[in-house]
Design a binder for these strands. Structure first.
Lengths: 229, 229
DNA sequence: CGTAACATTTAACCTCGGTCAAGTCATATC
DNA sequence: GATATGACTTGACCGAGGTTAAATGTTACG
């Protein structure tokens, strides 16, 4: 495939595979820890040996910082590229939902295959059509063109004191089924709610929305982040 | 790249390169003649030797019918796949123009890189949003999902008798600059005109539209096809 | 502390879609 | 009808991104 029209990629000679590796490493290192090989491999649907070799190549190209047997983090350069891909991914998700009316649980996989194919003009056009959105349909932040992220701190639902009210800002999962379920409960970015209680021993989390009181399993509650109001 | 979500591709295990070869072969054999290796190579930006090897592989996979030293045509199977890709290409062009407001001379290259990345759902959604269009922005016919093409015969502008009137139906070029120029003259599908004359010895073609009389070089006139009214 | 269990890397190999150089075929010309 | 010319194919090779099997590092645990 020609890369001549993909400025973002052409500038550094990056291809699909590289972009997907950087993307995964970015997400796995978001918490500050190095990403381990097997996890990367698993997410890419590749054997650990394959991932190991590829990571070594990426480290030779100064896109990741690799400590053998320990894990990988992104270099400055790698992070720049990853953020650009993530920007495209999230703009695409937004586009697929807002413009093409796909459901929010369908768009991740779609966006994934498209994120390495679109070019600068397409990216900018989406951004424009969507009014420069700052979050994707699930509430993840959309990096700016220059790789900067808005400074926002969403608080985990599970950390919210009982009695407080909030607005859902992010539902952090890429499992389509889970997202579908959560959406069906009316829990999406923008939904207002108040925290009613958390039962001990993995018991359900009780949350009140305009539709009534919901009791959520920890797996569900754990992916929800909110802004306290 | 995973192909699990690309039913059209997955069904037969086809990848980007294959799709692009079939696409080109389809276009080069549209006139009934076999496509020759060097032309295919040129259009794909590849050496003739590379194309030769690839064509052999495609013929082993029964996607093209290859007569060594003579040329290639598509098999039934190959044509089916090619038409599907072309459907996506033309729907994408339409989408890029109608929904994303790109100019008609910008969309071919865009559509080309996207045509192998989108999946069935995306294809169908575009089709729906666009109201099941039968032609792309340049007027080429959009094959149906099953590979059938509307039966329409556009007459070459150059074959139109002097004095006849018509509506432009297709501007058949993939050269961005040329399309841009033609568009600036107001000559696009839908434009009404009447034929004024063709000067001999490669002289210009005179055509009258609502904006006045235009004189067109043969290169320009040669890519215009119309319906006589 | 030695070792079992597991994660990671390396080695040898594969396929795909290319390249270049050399050889082969088809044809136009004299 | 021999031959020059250009199109086409073949052969040897390459790089990317994989695979499996074997080797090696790390860690937990009795």
């Amino acid at each position: 495939m020609s890369t001549a029209k993909h400025m973002h990629r052409e500038a550094i000679g990056v291809n699909d595979a590289t972009l997907h590796y950087l993307d995964i490493v970015y997400r796995l290192t978001f918490n500050g820890e190095a990403a381990n090989t097997s996890e990367i491999a698993k997410r890419l649907g590749v054997t650990p040996s394959g991932a190991s070799v590829m990571l070594k190549r990426l480290s030779e190209r100064k896109l990741v910082q690799l400590t053998p047997y320990k894990g990988a983090t992104l270099t400055q350069q790698g992070r720049r590229i990853a953020l650009r891909t993530i920007r495209r991914h999230r703009l695409l998700e937004m586009f697929l939902v807002q413009v093409m009316h796909f459901a929010w649980h369908e768009v991740d996989e779609h966006a994934h295959t498209l994120e390495t194919s679109i070019n600068d003009a397409f990216e900018e056009r989406m951004d424009l059509m969507l009014g420069h959105p700052t979050r994707c349909p699930h509430g993840h932040l959309i990096p700016a063109r220059d790789g900067t992220l808005p400074k926002v701190v969403d608080v985990p639902l599970l950390d919210m004191p009982i009695g407080t009210s909030g607005v859902i800002r992010c539902v952090d999962s890429d499992e389509s089924d889970l997202l579908k379920y959560v959406g069906e409960q009316g829990l999406m970015p923008g939904t207002q709610f108040s925290m009613r209680g958390i039962a001990p021993y993995g018991g359900p989390v009780m949350v009140e929305t305009e539709h009534g009181i919901l009791s959520l399993g920890l797996d569900v509650a754990g992916i929800i982040f909110a802004e306290i109001i």
